[in-house]
C-alpha cells in the first residue's frame, strides 16, 4: 500500500498560485509544489546537487519523521522522487547539508535531542539507497562545513567533546579531529565566511566562542550581552579586523520603540571581545510574532514566525522585504534558502513543500 501511495504521488502536480501571491509583488513567485506522501509529519527541507546519469542536478531533499526523500527536477514545475531512506526506530530531527559535497546528505536523528548522525547516499550503480552511522550519543549541535567537513558537539559540561570529521568518497568519516571544548555547553555552530580555519559556536551562557579549526585551539570567548536570551549565530564574516555576526532572537520581546526584533547584526572586536549592536531586523508595523525557525544566506534572512507567517529581510537594506502568510490555513513550519539557486523552500507540517523564486 505504501509503495502504491508513493508511486501515485511521486510526480507533483503543476503548482497553483496561492491566493496570497498578491501580497508579495515582485518578491516571491511560486515556482512549484512538492507533496510528500509519507503521511508522517514533515520536519525539514534542503536543496543540493546530486549527480544523476553523469549530470549534476539541483535536487531537493525532504525529511519527514521516518523518511528522507531525494527529488530530481523533471522541468521547472515538476519533481520526481528518486530515492527514499527509511528509518524505523529513531525519527529524523533535521537535515544537515554538507557544502562542497555531491551525492551525500547527512541527517540528525533523535527525539528531543540528537542521538545519531547518519550520512545518506546511494550505491555506486545508483540503484540502492545506503546509510552510514557517523556518530551516536548525546549530541547537542551539528553543522556541515565547507571542505567536506562536519562539526558536532556532544556530552555534557564536564565531558563535552567538539569533533570535526572529514568525509571520504564513500560517505564514511575519513579523519576525526577534536577541538578544545569551552567550559559551557555549545548549542550551535557557524562558519566565518571566507575564513576556512575559523569556526564560531554559541553557548548556553550567551557567549560566542571562536576556534582555530587547523590547530583545534579555543581562541576566545565573547559575551554578547543578556538583552536577548538564547540568541543563535546564523551568519558571520570578518571585515576590517572586526567580526560581523547575524543573530536570531527567539526570545525577543516586542517593544513599543523597536517593534519585534527577529534578527540582529552585531559587530565584535575579537581582540578585545567588546561588541556593539549595528542593526535590528524587526517586523513591519502591524505584524506580530517571534522567531520560530529560519535561515540566512548571503544577505537575505528568512524566518518562520510564531504567527505562522514567513518574513524575509534584506540584511543590507535593513528592512523586511516580503511576507508570506499561511496558505490554506496551514501555518508554515520551516523555511530554507536553496543551496543551488535563489529559491526559497517553505514547508508545512502536513508535508507540503512550496518552492518560491525570490
Amino acid at each position: 500500500q505504501s509503495t502504491e501511495q508513493e508511486q501515485s504521488a511521486s510526480l507533483t502536480e503543476v503548482a497553483e498560485l496561492p491566493a496570497c501571491q498578491s501580497s508579495n509583488p515582485g518578491h516571491l513567485q511560486l515556482v512549484s509544489k512538492l507533496k510528500n506522501p509519507s503521511g508522517s509529519c514533515s520536519v525539514d527541507v534542503s536543496a543540493m546537487w546530486w549527480e544523476i546519469a553523469g549530470f549534476k542536478e539541483p535536487c531537493i531533499i525532504t525529511a519527514c519523521e521516518y523518511v528522507v526523500s531525494l527529488w530530481k527536477p523533471l522541468n521547472t514545475l515538476q519533481w520526481e522522487k528518486l530515492y527514499s531512506w527509511h528509518f524505523t526506530e529513531v525519527p529524523v530531527l533535521q537535515i544537515v547539508p554538507v557544502p562542497d559535497v555531491c551525492n551525500l546528505v547527512c541527517v540528525a536523528l533523535g527525539n528531543l535531542e540528537i542521538r545519531e548522525i547518519r550520512s545518506l547516499l546511494c550505491s555506486s550503480d545508483g540503484k540502492r539507497e545506503k546509510q552510514v552511522l557517523l556518530s551516536s550519543g548525546n549530541i547537542k549541535a551539528v553543522l556541515g562545513l565547507t571542505g567536506r567537513r562536519l562539526v558536532s558537539s556532544s556530552g555534557t559540561l564536564c565531558d563535552q567533546q567538539v569533533e570535526i570529521m572529514t568525509f571520504a568518497e564513500d560517505g564514511r568519516s575519513k579523519e576525526k579531529q577534536f577541538l578544545m571544548p569551552p567550559e559551557e555547553t555549545v548549542l550551535t555552530f557557524a562558519e566565518v565566511q571566507g575564513m576556512q580555519e575559523a569556526l564560531l559556536g554559541t553557548t548556553i551562557m550567551n557567549n560566542i566562542v571562536i576556534w582555530n579549526l587547523k590547530t583545534g585551539q579555543l581562541l576566545k570567548k565573547m559575551h554578547i550581552g543578556d538583552r536577548y536570551q538564547a540568541s543563535v549565530c546564523r551568519k558571520a564574516y570578518s571585515e576590517m579586523g572586526l567580526l560581523f555576526v547575524v543573530l536570531s532572537h527567539p526570545c525577543a520581546k516586542e517593544s513599543e520603540l523597536l517593534g519585534s526584533p527577529v534578527f540582529q547584526l552585531i559587530v565584535i572586536n575579537p581582540k578585545t571581545t567588546l561588541s556593539v549592536g549595528v542593526m535590528l531586523y524587526c517586523l513591519p508595523q502591524g505584524q506580530a510574532g517571534r522567531f520560530l525557525e529560519g535561515d540566512v544566506k548571503d544577505h537575505f534572512a528568512a524566518a518562520v514566525l510564531t504567527s505562522g507567517t514567513i518574513a524575509i529581510w534584506d540584511l543590507l537594506l535593513g528592512h523586511c522585504t516580503a511576507l508570506l502568510p499561511p496558505i490554506s490555513d496551514q501555518h508554515w513550519s520551516f523555511v530554507k534558502w536553496s543551496g543551488t539557486d535563489s529559491h526559497l523552500l517553505a514547508g508545512q507540517k502536513d508535508g507540503n513543500i512550496f518552492v518560491y523564486r525570490y
Binding site: M180, L219, K220, S238, P270, T272, S275, V276
Partner: peptide, 23 residues
C-alpha cells in the same frame, strides 16, 4: 557604531589570537 566602543582593532586578529591562545 563608534569604533572607540570596540577598543583597538587588528586586521590579523585570527593569527594573533592563535599565537596567544593555549595550544
Amino acid at each position: 557604531c563608534n569604533q572607540a566602543d570596540l577598543g583597538p582593532i587588528s586586521l590579523n586578529w585570527f593569527e594573533e589570537l592563535s599565537l596567544e591562545a593555549p595550544p
